[in-house]
Computed example of a mutant assay.
Amino acid sequence: MSEIKERYFKAQQEEKKKQLENHSKTIKDFISLCSEIGLKLTNENFSYIQTIGIVAKYPNLLFHLKPELEKVDEELIECKSLEKHFEKKIFNSGMLYSDKFIAMAHPYFRRSLSEFANFAPRFIDLFWKFKDDKVKTYIALDANRVRVNVDDSAYLELDTWYGASFKEQIEKIPNGVVKIRPPAQLDETDISFFFNDAYSFDIKWTEKNEIKTFQAEEFKTEKVTINIRGTEYYPVRYLHAEYDIKNKHFRHFDGAIHFYEKTEYFQRRDSDLNFNEKIGTHLKAKTYKLFKMNENVSVETWITYTSHFCTGNPLVFEYFEGKYPDHIQEILNKIGKKASG
């Protein structure tokens, strides 16, 4: 096995070297482009990433190249304004094409929140194709990196995760908290394979002045962490939406990542979304907002994007459908029979 790994990593390094050599002129031209706006990039700022292509990395690079891009809410940019500066291509979701480079959706949309992974299907694919004149959309972009090989190459991964349906009327959902956990008989390996490392899915509904508010946090097991500038965090996907009872649509819907430090994570994960109301000092995680939809968001859109933001998590499907996806239920039945036999 060690020999196989060694050969694999050697082949990866050779491929990286070859790709950088093949794109040497493209890299040189991009360095010149950056020099014109006062940025000093060298070959060290470039890398080849199999899932992306030739990537240039520099602090706030995208906004140096496109200073006219305007952040309207924390790190979010209105999608309609992006159409003035970039072109979308249906086959390459998450990419925004210009003549000299390609901007990209934020790396927290990628699998495992990794800047080296492909985008986690199918949230970005759906978001890139979303069109509804009644809804204003906003998204976070990769500020520090752009792709410099402006061609039609794309790294495709198939995905079989589908969104759930939801037949309840939003206004009739009881206010309060819900906490969903994987079945108790599953071990760590089962949860990793079949529940995408989900620890719990926490939901809270509240209501005030004809507005019904939805909040949800998706906790992963403690093995899922991310290092940000030397500090280890536990990433938790967070969703928030406001439903207008009178007009029967969501007036606001957004998604973010909450980053909990170790003590905060273990304090919070076995409680619920009323946690701060139960303790004297409020626990407030670091937050990075990733997308937003405003004005007239349909219930169907809210369900679809909630399902795919938490991609591969059967607990989300269970909340909306009242059951697990069929293929997960079949696996659970087999595990149950094996345990009882």
Rank of each mutant, 00 (worst) to 15 (best):
L126A: 13
F127R: 02
W128G: 01
K129G: 02
K129I: 01
F130V: 08
D132R: 14
V135K: 09
K136C: 01
I139H: 00
I139K: 03
I139S: 01
A140N: 07
L141M: 11
L141H: 03
L141I: 04
A143R: 00
A143H: 00
A143P: 00
N144Y: 08
N144G: 15
R145T: 09
V146H: 13
V146A: 12
V148M: 09
N149V: 03
N149A: 10
V150E: 09
S153R: 15
A154G: 11
Y155E: 13
Y155K: 13
L156Y: 14
E157Q: 09
L158K: 13
T160W: 07
T160H: 12
W161Y: 09
W161I: 09
W161N: 06
W161R: 02
G163W: 01
G163K: 01
A164D: 00
F166M: 01
F166T: 01
K167F: 00
K167D: 01
E168W: 00
Q169L: 01
E171D: 10
I173E: 03
N175M: 10
N175H: 01
G176D: 14
V177S: 14
V177W: 09
V178L: 05
R181N: 15
P182Q: 11
P182L: 03
P183R: 03
A184F: 14
A184W: 11
Q185E: 04
L186R: 02
L186G: 10
L186Q: 11
E188K: 12
I191L: 08
S192T: 04
F193G: 07
F194K: 07
F194Q: 08
F194T: 11
F195I: 14
F195W: 07
N196E: 10
D197C: 05
D197M: 08
F201M: 06
F201T: 03
D202S: 09
I203D: 01
W205L: 02
K208Y: 10
N209L: 11
N209C: 10
N209R: 07
N209I: 10
E210M: 04
I211N: 08
T213R: 06
T213V: 07
T213A: 05
T213F: 01
Q215S: 08
A216N: 05
E217L: 04
E217W: 00
E217M: 02
F219V: 03
F219L: 04
K220N: 04
T221M: 15
E222C: 15
E222H: 15
T225H: 12
N227R: 14
R229L: 08
R229Q: 15
G230C: 11
T231R: 13
T231C: 11
T231D: 12
E232P: 07
Y234W: 10
Y234E: 07
P235L: 02
P235W: 06
P235G: 06
V236W: 06
V236D: 12
H240M: 13
H240I: 13
E242Y: 04
Y243Q: 05
Y243G: 08
Y243V: 03
D244E: 05
N247M: 02
